[in-house]
Amino acid sequence: MEQRAGGSRIVDFDLEKQTVRELNQYLHKELPKNGVEEVRIFNPDGAHHIAVGMDAPAKVDIMGNAGYFVAGMNKHAEVTVRGSVGWSVAENIMSGTVRVEGYASECAGASGRGGLLVIEKDASSRCGISMKGNDIVVGGSVGHFSAFMAQAGRLVVCGDAGDGLGDSLYEAVIYVRGEMKGLGADAREEPTTEEDHASLAGLLERAGFDHDTEEFKRVASARSLYHWNADRDQGY
């Protein structure tokens, strides 16, 4: 049902009455052509795949908890989840913004290539796994093995980080404000530079947090796994 609010065109979907498939087909096929600026989704009730494959610069407001893969492969859209999300929110995100006002389960922002994912509360394990250029800001803490094999992009953790942080990192950079339970293979803490502070300040501002950047530690790759070496630790 379409309505106008403050001059912008808004369409509402109610997942008690409509299916996720109908919603996604609308978002893919009609929305890019019809000039609607905002879509509100009521009664998401933990459904999977809400607003996956977005390819238009619209606002999508999900009024409750969502399941797996919400906003997966997002391009251009600004998606807000007014609740918590299941696994792999914004996986393979390319651009745009995805904001989760609650908590995120595992693999948040996995393998994303651009754009920004904000989790206002905590994210579970493997947050930012395999990330390839996206930015993730977590207001709370992240679980173990976060940023595993992360290739590019920035993961900002305003709370604590679980064990094995940044295991097998490539060129992604992690900033952690709280405690780090343990670093993964080839991840190391490094001094922060002016550049780090500037980039972190920009990200925090976009994410809506006002922490002092001096409180953050920087973790990056020691690059000792960049070349396969038979003589190194045989545990690997």
């Binding site: 893919h28 494959g53 797996y68 696994w87 996995a110 393998s111």
Partner: peptide
């Protein structure tokens, strides 16, 4: 895979790919 692990997750991953490509 970075975003799913067991067979139950695979079901949901496949559905995601279908949703993105409109089945």
């Amino acid at each position: 895979h970075p975003d799913w692990t067991g067979p139950d997750d695979l079901t949901i991953k496949i559905e995601e790919l279908r949703e993105i490509t409109d089945w």
